[in-house]
Amino acid sequence: MRLRSVSKVYGSAPRSVTALDSVTTEFPVGSFTAVMGPSGSGKSTLLHCAAGLDRPTSGEVLLGGTDLGGLDETKLTELRRERIGFVFQSYNLVSALTAAQNVALPLRLAGRRPRPSEVDGALAEVGLGARGTHLPSEMSGGEQQRVALARALVTRPAAVFADEPTGALDSKTSRDVLTLLRGVVDRHRQTVVMVTHDPVAASYADRVLLMVDGRITEELTGSLTAEAIATANRRGTSC
């Protein structure tokens, strides 16, 4: 997945707000990228544009050679269902559906009849193979987030986008969810892009993009520690 000179402007002059300012970056296949920055830096807008949830004002977003800007709403919706998975801080599970039914939902929305093996396999991968018949209200926050991850993975998407996936979880449960995301990359060569404010969460990634005022100001790679990430993030926001 690639972004070329992507800008996103909200409103019109003189009160327009530039959320993204000519951002160019790439999310290679089988990579885990964390995006950090202060509130209003553009990190969530970057994720939304890359995932096809929002259209950029200018520039190109390409997924496997497909320019998302050239798709109408119907084709864009189909692409999101088939090739992109989403995990959000608030889980976004349907309360009246069981864990298995929530996981099967993307397949049903795509007009497919889910195979039990697909749904059971996705739940087993996140450690919830025995919880398929439980409602969200019967599960902990960490279990609900793992159901949300299984739902994102059931279509075997090319990319998984996670927006503060551990923001509502305690530290132990956060580690469990991050380990699962790391495993998605290592075992299945899927691409994960995660927005986070937490340097510990970011340390699970292969690289970290630091954003300020709608621009990527620094890219961290190599052996990433939470301390080094936090220091770089503070340095970037103080400039």
Rank of each mutant, 00 (worst) to 15 (best):
R2G: 02
R2Q: 15
S5E: 15
K8T: 11
V9C: 01
G11V: 03
G11S: 05
S12T: 14
V23K: 10
T24D: 14
E26Y: 04
G30H: 08
S31W: 11
F32Y: 15
F32N: 06
T33C: 11
V35L: 12
M36G: 00
P38H: 12
S39A: 09
K43F: 04
S44R: 00
L46G: 02
L47D: 10
H48S: 11
L53P: 11
S58Q: 15
L62V: 15
L62S: 13
D67W: 08
D67S: 14
D67Y: 09
G69T: 14
G70C: 06
L71N: 05
E73N: 10
T74V: 12
T74A: 12
L76D: 06
T77D: 10
R83W: 02
R83S: 11
V87L: 09
V87D: 02
Q89I: 03
Q89V: 01
A96P: 00
L97V: 02
A99N: 12
Q101T: 05
N102S: 09
N102W: 12
A104G: 10
L107G: 05
R108H: 04
L109M: 14
L109I: 15
R112W: 07
R112A: 13
R113M: 07
P114I: 02
P114M: 04
R115P: 01
R115Q: 13
S117W: 07
E118Y: 04
V119S: 02
D120Q: 14
D120F: 00
L123S: 11
E125K: 08
E125I: 00
G129A: 12
R131I: 01
G132Y: 05
G132H: 11
S137P: 01
E138K: 12
S140Y: 11
E143G: 06
Q144M: 15
R146M: 10
V147L: 10
L149M: 05
A152L: 10
L153Y: 11
L153N: 09
V154D: 11
T155E: 03
A158T: 14
F161K: 02
F161C: 03
P165H: 06
G167K: 03
D170F: 09
D170Q: 09
D170R: 08
K172P: 00
K172N: 09
S174V: 05
D176Y: 02
D176N: 04
V177H: 01
V177M: 03
L178Y: 09
L181W: 08
R182W: 10
V185I: 08
R189A: 15
R189P: 04
V195L: 03
T196N: 06
A205I: 07
V208N: 13
M211A: 05
V212M: 07
D213M: 03
I216D: 11
I216V: 15
I216W: 13
G222W: 09
T225P: 04
A226G: 00
A226Y: 02
G236F: 01
S238W: 04
